[in-house]
Design a protein around this nucleic acid. Structure first.
Lengths: 136, 136
DNA sequence: TCGGGATGTGTTATGACATAACATAACGAA
DNA sequence: TTCGTTATGTTATGTCATAACACATCCCGA
């Protein structure tokens, strides 16, 4: 486990197993990939994964990448507060870097305020090439 | 048809039918909803819709909402240039408003530049309540 | 005008992602 | 202990998207 997170104290066995698989992965994983990774631990059905993911997302330990239908462990401590996380997805190596920049979040909140839109959450996903892959 | 777009001159019949369905809808539509709307025009299979959508997206006439697995007609004239469009999705009424604000796009480009990330495209989707629904 | 590549279309089958519904078990507080 | 809440296991189903192949159409250049 990296230094990014101490486990939420009340994770169940399934939640903990799913979190550890995501946290040990370089790249986002689909729910079915997680399922396959946990067959040895007794997982049999997609719902076992989806239910754990649902809780982990509520705890802020895991994010869903909408454009990939995949999931990543949060790379920020205490991420639950970050309503406006963003992700840069490398189309070559598949790695994702997460960011939470006030310079990006603020103008979005401002737009919402001007429009009278009550912001409940936001999703920002960038496609492109990461620094390591740009010279490839 | 609203004033937002004049049809791309070279739309085929299928592309035109799919575009018109989206353009006539208040809210985003799934590919299968579009298919059902076009059965009367002879559509039988999902691929007929997906192939039209693929072209329409390439022309900038249609956008995909990743968080909904659904599609909307572009609401900006000459949208092909707006690589960094964003969408505010009302969770009550389902309506979507599209925006393309330099104040939002610029800090994202800046972040990418600082990180050495070669930006190929971006997805920005906001969840919340629109002005009309916030008082409901 | 005759090809021949590029693009569009129709159809069947399949793959990938996600949830409904129901039963059982574990847990924690009154 | 008892009861509500939360977690779990399982089967079946629903939703979204694409592969593979055959045929048609269009345009352009020899």
């Amino acid at each position: 486990m990296t230094a990014a997170h101490v486990h939420h104290p009340d994770l169940t066995r399934n939640q903990s197993l799913v979190y550890d698989v995501l946290n040990g992965s370089d790249a986002p994983l689909s729910a079915y990939s997680i399922l396959d990774a946990l067959r040895g631990e007794g997982f049999r059905a997609p719902l076992q994964v989806y239910r754990a993911l649902e809780k982990l997302r509520a705890y802020g330990l895991v994010h869903r990448l909408e454009s990939l239908n995949a999931f990543v462990a949060c790379s920020h401590p205490d991420c639950a507060g970050h309503e406006t996380a963003g992700f840069a997805i490398c189309e070559k190596c598949g790695k994702v870097s997460e960011f939470a920049e006030e310079r990006i979040a603020a103008p979005i909140r401002d737009w919402a305020k001007r429009e009278g839109f009550v912001l409940a959450g936001s999703m920002i996903e960038l496609r492109g090439l990461c620094r390591d892959c740009r010279e490839g």
